[in-house]
Design a protein around this nucleic acid. Structure first.
Lengths: 149, 149
DNA sequence: TTGCTCCTCACGTCACGTGAGGTGGC
DNA sequence: TTGCTCCTCACGTCACGTGAGGTGGC
């Protein structure tokens, strides 16, 4: 949107921004989780944008917080790319097809629902763990108090 | 406490109870995360109790929910074993040493605090993710509603 | 006794880590 | 031009998965 060309970063900076390593990024590219960018000549440096950083941050987050495998993440990214492509096509040929538009939005909603399900599942488990730990903590505090009587 | 001898289970049942596999259990024994039990003769079956199941469940939980490495889990288990040993010794020679008792309880409290810190950190991250997803969801719902006008 | 379940190697796999030796680009 | 940072192999490692071939125990 801005008139100035976007600043591009290299693999080291992308790694720092996303809390990963260059090796991890190259590996993700190798297995097709990240795409290779526009046909880089062999030996030349990889170049990224802030959009790439956002995408990778999201991937790393889902990997760490939900424990998804790289295969699952690849599927997820592919589904997301496919839906983005559909939306792009749709915007390119604007029509009055409200049903189609509603369908696309519903699809997006379902996708968000699925992720929310995973997140809330984890949240529930962690809250149970937290409860158990605070219970233990209360017990210890009680015993300490009993010593001072 | 009960007069009846405790039922012992084999590796397959332990795996089922803990949501792991026999291979995983053998591996954890191999690296010293689980102890090998009383000197089993080579080739004979491993035998476990429900206490072993509880311990392993807890390990698996921390592994999955907090993403701890097996090295970290080994440290944690060792620390816990050491503290249990100290408590056992202490109970064996009951004394009036209230300061010592207070010290042990405080140590236990600190350990719980550490785990609570990890759990709450994760909880915070997951709650942020949940918030972002519900925001997205609201946006989609809004757009769908706008179509029906 | 039969049939599961278990046993011990041992090689395979996933997700990277870690050099070695060499080149790209501000 | 110098000096980082990056490049591509390629082998190592962690946490198991997956047979192969054989034995334990209700």
């Amino acid at each position: 949107v801005s008139a100035t060309a976007e600043r591009t970063i290299r693999i080291g900076e992308l790694a720092q921004l996303t809390g990963t390593t260059p090796r991890t990024i190259r590996y993700y590219e190798e297995i097709g989780l990240l795409d290779a960018g526009e046909a880089r000549e062999l030996g030349k440096h990889r170049s990224y944008t802030s959009a790439d950083a956002e995408r990778l941050k999201e991937i790393v987050r889902l990997r760490d917080l939900l424990g998804l495998s790289l295969e699952q993440l690849t599927e997820l990214v592919e589904a997301e790319t496919a839906r983005a492509e559909i939306r792009r096509e749709y915007r390119a040929t604007p029509s009055e097809d409200v049903d189609r538009q509603r369908y696309l939005l519903t699809q997006a909603g379902r996708h968000i629902e699925t992720q929310l399900g995973l997140v809330r599942g984890r949240l529930g488990e962690l809250q149970m763990l937290e409860q158990e730990l605070t219970d233990k903590q209360a017990l210890v505090a009680e015993k300490i108090a009993a010593l001072s009587v």
